[in-house]
Amino acid sequence: MTGAARSLAELDEVIGQTLRDADLVHEHPAPGKWLVDLPGTKKLKTVCGLIVGEHALRVEAFVCRQPDENREQLWTFLLQHNARMYGVAYSIDAVGDIYLTGRLPHAAITREEIDRILGAVLSYADDDFNTMLEIGFGTSIRREWDWRVKRGESLRNLEAFAAFADPDRRPDAVPDRRPATDPASPDARR
């Protein structure tokens, strides 16, 4: 329906039906306000807000807290991705937390477009998540890995970072210079 103004009730109906059809967990705390849980694989869940404004639908999803390190490198990574993204772009808030944000005019609010924009949010948040963590939190992840190894704790939820967190797999790791066997061992005397 282009040209004519669409009512809040009509827009809410389109959004609500789209979320129900997609079987997405969501909340509708007030007219024109939606919170949608988007299940991922790397980032297990991205919560996306859909807020109907006077002229446009605002889309906003928290992706990652402010980085501990390498901020400029991470901002460069995000800005380079923005040029190729559909409907949303990476942005940061006043403290440096990372979001995906976008706006759709009321005329563009259709089931297909809501599905497409939610798919884009999920794809960008999930696909880039581990890279963002490696760039912005690499030192903390390596420390956590080392601490867990020393204590014999599970590394299961850190396995995605093994290539750079595990000292034996890191490209900057110093090769082990110890002899293959201990000269004092019975195997070395044979």
Rank of each mutant, 00 (worst) to 15 (best):
T2P: 01
G3W: 08
A4E: 13
L11S: 05
D12I: 01
I15Q: 01
R20L: 09
R20E: 14
D23K: 06
D23G: 11
V25Q: 13
H26Q: 07
E27P: 04
L35F: 05
V36H: 00
V36T: 01
L38W: 01
T41N: 01
T41G: 00
L44V: 03
L44H: 04
K45G: 02
T46M: 03
T46K: 04
V47R: 05
C48A: 08
I51M: 13
V52E: 10
H55E: 15
V59G: 03
F62H: 11
C64H: 06
R65V: 14
Q66E: 15
Q66M: 14
Q73Y: 02
L74M: 15
W75C: 07
T76K: 14
L78D: 11
H81T: 10
H81Y: 07
H81A: 15
N82D: 12
G87W: 01
S91K: 09
I98T: 06
Y99M: 10
L104V: 08
P105D: 13
P105A: 14
I109W: 02
T110Y: 02
R111T: 12
I114F: 01
I117Y: 01
I117N: 00
L118V: 03
A120W: 01
A120C: 10
S123I: 00
D128R: 10
F129T: 09
M132F: 08
L133M: 15
L133E: 15
S140R: 09
R142H: 06
D146G: 06
D146Y: 02
V149W: 02
G152R: 03
E153C: 03
S154T: 09
S154V: 06
S154Y: 04
S154N: 04
R156I: 12
L158I: 03
A160H: 04
A160R: 10
F161C: 09
R169M: 05
P171Y: 12
D172T: 07
A173M: 10
D176V: 02
P179C: 09
A184I: 09
S185W: 06
P186D: 07
D187T: 14
D187W: 12
R190T: 07
R190Y: 03
